[in-house]
């Protein structure tokens, strides 16, 4: 465990020094994410010009929800996103060999090696926006709520990571991840809408089969309404199930992998 921790510290050091080499690019990327945040806030501002409620939430509540999904998005962009971008290329080009022969878990290495320094700055901005929405939110909340929220934010990020992996791993068989990755980004929009707008089979799709609606809506509910322990444990259970699924598909994929030297 300590070895993995030290290795991750080295990943961080390497990523920050690499980002500082390209300062103009770093600035552009920070600006890009700020615009992304503004577009998301403006989207709901425009919607609320025409309705008092969306998914049963008022505009004030919706801002807490928006801040929650921006936070989860920022965590994923910082920790996983660059790695997820490169993984299909490694699989197709046979570059996975370099990761398979190292004395650490290849899944750990491939998922966490590239830490995005520019997104880290945006993670701080997302955190600031979240703190602002909570500070201006009229309903009271306690320390336990914050603690549970942190757990569910990490949990939501892991669900997002697992679904993304499940969309990338078919590359082992299809040799092109483009279709599935495009599909993932289209589906990702489901996370950015309150879960109660989904009804019938669409609700089953986004809460059970591809649980995008669980990622941000449920953590936000801690502040917006009551979240019972059963739901809390259910969310952790979903992550465990998806993690088992990712591990299984990863192993099957590796069995199907043709390396550059084979």
């Amino acid at each position: 465990m300590k070895r993995y921790f030290l290795l991750y510290l080295n990943f961080l050091r390497f990523s920050f020094s690499k980002a500082m080499e390209f300062r103009l690019d770093l600035t552009f990327r920070i600006l890009m994410d700020i615009i992304y945040y503004l577009v998301n806030i403006l989207f709901f501002k425009v919607i609320y010009l025409h309705t008092p409620l969306l998914g049963g939430w008022t505009e004030e509540q919706m801002l807490v929800f928006v801040a929650t999904y921006l936070l989860i998005d920022a965590i994923n962009m910082t920790v996983f996103s660059t790695n997820m971008w490169w993984l299909p290329f490694y699989i197709n080009k046979g570059d996975l060999d370099y990761y398979l022969i190292r004395p650490v878990s290849p899944l750990f290495f491939l998922s966490l090696r590239e830490f995005s320094a520019s997104s880290f700055v945006n993670l701080l901005i997302a955190l600031g926006f979240f703190a602002y929405t909570l500070a201006t939110y009229s309903a009271p909340f306690g320390g336990l709520d914050l603690l549970l929220f942190v757990v569910l934010i990490v949990n939501g990020s892991l669900i997002y990571y697992c679904i993304q992996m499940l969309m990338i791993l078919p590359t082992f068989w299809t040799h092109s991840a483009k279709g599935f990755i495009d599909l993932f980004y289209s589906l990702g929009m489901a996370m950015e809408r309150p879960d109660r707008i989904y009804r019938g089979w669409l609700r089953i799709l986004f809460t059970v089969l591809l649980p995008f609606a669980l990622i941000a809506s449920f953590p936000a509910r801690i502040f917006l309404e009551h979240l019972d322990w059963g739901t809390f444990l259910h969310l952790l259970g979903v992550t465990a199930v998806f993690w088992v699924l990712v591990s299984y598909v990863w192993k099957k994929g590796l069995a199907n992998y043709s390396s550059a030297s084979s």
């Binding site: 299809t174 092109s176 483009k178 279709g179 495009d182 599909l183």
Partner: peptide, 11 residues
């Protein structure tokens, strides 16, 4: 890449 095309199309 036909599978890509159909997945993107439907998705």
């Amino acid at each position: 890449y036909r599978s890509d095309f159909w997945i993107t199309f439907l998705g």
